[in-house]
Design a protein around this nucleic acid. Structure first.
Lengths: 312, 312
DNA sequence: AATAAAGGTGACAACTATTGGCACTATTAA
DNA sequence: TTAATAGTGCCAATAGTTGTCACCTTTATT
């Protein structure tokens, strides 16, 4: 990155955090200590009122707020944002009830003629594909709202087999492989569960004192709530490098790659009710995976293949 | 004077005077014509909406005051754009060399404290996941450039089996399931080919008159160039509704869903060299698919399953 | 008094970016 | 047609930037 650009970013970095250390700068911008020092000197030369505190627990402080130069998005940023937007556009539902057309128009409006031309020509040449959304989700906004406001919901949930009514406390929502999911605490079962949003048929906010504080829980760490039930069966498979690549592309939170003496293993647990699913999942790996345990899983996979052979 | 400092001053200079000429800039900053032009180009790169008027009494005009771009978007729209960007962030390589932190901060700057808080809390609650990128691609920018500029490249391409040198004319690049691909015309084989970008080990622009005009070809219609070779084998499979869902999530341009009397079929062709691939692909469908023809494919799938049974 | 953790300097070689000059081209109004 | 304006491509000289390394200063904690 060019120095001038870095300094501009540093201006905003400094403005946001009124206290910071050299290390912060080094890590943030991935530069050497010497360069960080030089950059700070440059900022001071530009008139940024910085005060340095020596010694342990020292650092820099911004003495008074600075007026930032007028900004606009750079061409590169505009392109990236535009294509990000394009990529998301193919989602028929998002939790943000917006018209992409209006964003699109506003976006183009703010650009220079040159940028617009560049976007036009790039549009023909770049794309981000992802799994298309298969089912519309009616309640994404409500689920998101409930998760930020710590609300409890009563939902009607339909799977292929049954329809149930559950009380849940949403933690987060996320889109993956064409589906929207909702991480939640299932208050009936007192357990962490993930629901597919398109299977939620109705939603009602419930007043309840019996809730758990999820303030500190984020989409990243929510899985710590995931506990296998007593019936859960642990499994272990040998996996090749190719298999690991495939796993990364379609992983599940309940599975992990483990290294043992330079061999790799896919380990995890599955619920007895999910056995069909796990068999199909393991089968998709073909020879890149080999079940070590349990033996019952081996037998079931064998049976699955035999069944398919007869089916063919 | 350093360029970065000069550009900052120029930003103010431009902001003050709505109209100016190159000469003004040259006199003001005591630089050469060439440098003045380069500086103005830099400003435009940074997103300053300048308009140039050619000819006598021409000059530059600032189209509109430089402001914070997101300010004209509604909260909902800002959120959507913001998360679109977040979704892209997990790509380790994009053809746009941008700093996401910079975009992030520019976004936040134009917002009210309330909106900022909302974004902060939403960030913990919503995510768009997609296949993680496994390999970095070194030449995305070059490939994109070559595709927009109609250039011919000589590339070193490495597959698991071999390393070859090819002359290609890139048409487009796209990201799918964790990989970047480059649609191209392979000038050696005179055929449409798709290359995985991370397998391109070096790139060199080649001057060549022997090129094909790809101006009218876009990422959407490039597949028309795809022609099965003489050896290609057509196949046809019965497919269930569930199977169709899976197909949509992992489709290939050489395959299509066809309806015949309320039954659905997956039809396409495969090259004899790709038979391993197609077998694994069909196997991943399990019972949701059933090969109709050719019979040889049925036999091969059967053999594949038998092999796996022995392997287990 | 010693130590750890923070900021700070000077020098240098390798690397990158910027610059001005030049010879062009393109567009527009008079 | 001309004059005035913007814009391009190329090059070699020059200027700026970077990381590394050794060593210094200040301060709170132990």
């Amino acid at each position: 990155m060019k120095k001038s650009e870095r300094l501009n970013q540093m201006l905003r970095f400094v403005n946001q955090r009124q206290r910071f250390t050299l290390k912060d700068v080094i890590n943030e911008f991935q530069i050497s200590k010497r360069t960080a020092l030089r950059d700070i000197a440059s900022l001071e030369e530009m008139g940024v009122p910085l005060y340095a505190e020596y010694g342990r627990y020292g650092g820099y402080r911004l003495v008074k707020p600075i007026t930032l130069p007028p900004i606009s998005f750079s061409s590169q940023e505009v392109f990236a944002l535009y294509f990000a937007m394009q990529a998301l556009q193919s989602f028929t539902s998002t939790p943000f009830e917006i018209s992409y057309r209006s964003v699109h128009e506003k976006f183009l409006e703010g650009l220079t003629t040159k940028q617009r031309k560049q976007i036009d020509s790039l549009q023909k040449r770049v794309a981000f594909f992802h799994a298309e959304q298969l089912h519309e989700c009616a309640y994404l906004e409500e689920l998101l709202l409930a998760s930020t406001n710590n609300q409890i919901l009563s939902i009607v949930y339909t799977t292929e087999k049954q329809t149930t009514i559950r009380r849940i406390q949403p933690i987060s929502i996320y889109a993956m492989k064409g589906y929207w999911y909702c991480q939640s605490l299932d208050l009936n079962k007192k357990a962490y569960r993930v629901f597919r949003c398109d299977r939620i048929k109705s939603i009602e906010v419930v007043e309840d004192v019996d809730m758990i504080d999820v303030e500190g829980i984020t989409i990243e760490n929510a899985h710590v709530f995931w506990k296998p039930t007593d019936q859960a069966i642990p499994f272990k498979c040998e996996i090749t490098k190719t298999g690991i690549e495939q796993f990364i592309q379609s992983q599940f939170p309940s599975m992990k790659i483990k290294e043992e003496h330079n061999d790799y293993y896919l380990v995890g647990t599955y619920e007895p009710t999910e056995v069909d699913f796990i068999i199909r999942y393991l089968a998709s790996f073909g020879k890149t995976i080999r079940i070590v345990e349990p033996v019952s899983l081996k037998e079931q996979l064998k049976a699955y293949y035999l069944d398919l052979i007869n089916y063919i």
